[in-house]
Simulated scan of single mutants.
Amino acid sequence: MFAERGFAGTSLRDVSAAIGISMSSLIHHFGSKERLYGAVLERLAASLEAYVKAAHADEPQSVADMLDAFCDWAFDHEHYAQLLLRELMENRVRAQAARKWHLAQIIGSYVGQIQRGQADGSVRPFDAEMFVFYVTGAITHFAAAAPTVQRMLGMASFDETVERFRRTLRETTFAMLRGCGPGSDVEVISARPPSDGPSS
């Protein structure tokens, strides 16, 4: 409900009716809609953390591999990805009073991976924190918009649309981390031949 209607559009009455318990029981367990919503965000963060840890299971992985894991999470948990996108867009007012940032540790994992590379010279210097927010926003937005993107671009299948996004994400990530130019190990792949002119 939070994913589909947002925080403001979901009431405790709606939730209690959907799960078949009384309002008083729901309030007894959570106290308020804010605390219930916080519990949902905490579960969301825990599910994403499992994917981030899996990316490091055997050996140190690149930032691109971590972002691949984020993509896996977004498409395995579409409601969570939709909720995260809503949270990024709709939390402007509530952010002022927020006491806990449930995704801060995971964001920190991505930032730390980049900064370690910057410290040893394998990653070029840039604002790691802003890059991570930019890319995570792009992934959550695409996860929500993928069916629309498929239709707009006339892609043959949903899987092809997602793979095209993943490829572009990796190319963009490597270009940002290492630079793209002569001597770069980034291979830029054009998904479609260039157009002869502007489309109508």
Score class of each variant (00 low, 15 high):
A145G: 05
F174T: 01
M130F: 03
P147Y: 12
R170Y: 06
A143Q: 10
H141D: 10
A144W: 08
V162R: 10
E163G: 11
E163V: 06
P147I: 14
M155N: 15
L177W: 00
L169F: 01
T172Y: 05
F131S: 02
A144T: 09
R166G: 04
F165D: 06
R178I: 00
M152N: 11
F158M: 14
T136C: 05
F142K: 08
F165C: 06
R164H: 07
T172G: 01
T140I: 06
L177T: 00
H141L: 12
V149A: 15
A175S: 13
A175M: 07
E160R: 13
F174D: 11
F165P: 05
R167I: 01
R178F: 03
V135Y: 02
A145N: 11
T161C: 15
F158V: 04
R151G: 03
F165K: 10
T148Q: 14
E163F: 06
F133S: 02
H141Q: 11
L169I: 00
M155H: 15
F165T: 07
E129Y: 10
A156N: 10
L153R: 13
P147D: 10
A146I: 09
Y134G: 12
T172W: 01
T168D: 07
E129D: 12
H141E: 09
R178P: 01
R170M: 08
G154I: 11
A138N: 08
F142M: 13
S157A: 15
T136K: 08
T173V: 08
E160L: 12
F174S: 04
T140W: 11
A144N: 09
A144F: 11
F165Q: 08
T136I: 04
I139P: 01
M155R: 15
L169A: 01
R164Q: 13
V135K: 03
R178Y: 09
R151A: 14
E163N: 11
T161H: 08
T140G: 05
F142G: 06
V162N: 03
T140F: 12
P147G: 13
Q150T: 14
F165V: 10
E160H: 09
T173D: 00
A128G: 05
Q150N: 04
M176C: 02
I139C: 03
A144Y: 05
G137I: 03
